[in-house]
Amino acid sequence: MRIVCPFCGERELGEFTYLGDAKPQRPAADAGEDAVYDYVYMRDNIAGVMSENWYHGGGCRSWLKVTRNTLTHEISAVEAAAGAGAAKVGA
């Protein structure tokens, strides 16, 4: 599998580490135990198009949001995580 890193270009799978579903959002501090429990444990097992967190540890150390079909491994979109890169420097 190959992933097009927005910073480094197309690179092979070995440079990346998979984390999991990118959809669940970390609950706010006051959200309560049930919400955090859902966030930590209640993950969907998606057969089809999924938005995933990948880490380009073998390259620029960016976290990427990768849209991938888990059935075909087809990757339809890759975008950098909101805080990736050095965008805030000098901003």
Binding site: T17, L19, A22, R26, N53, Y55, G57, R61, S62, W63, A80, A81, A82, G83, A84, A86, K88, V89
Partner: peptide, 24 residues
């Protein structure tokens, strides 16, 4: 290595609003 990856995840994905940079 894993802590670096974890901290980058926290910085880039969980808390992108924070103005902070990590250097190994």
């Amino acid at each position: 290595g894993l802590v670096m990856q974890h901290l980058e995840f926290c910085r880039q994905v969980l808390f992108p609003e924070l103005d902070v940079q990590l250097t190994s």
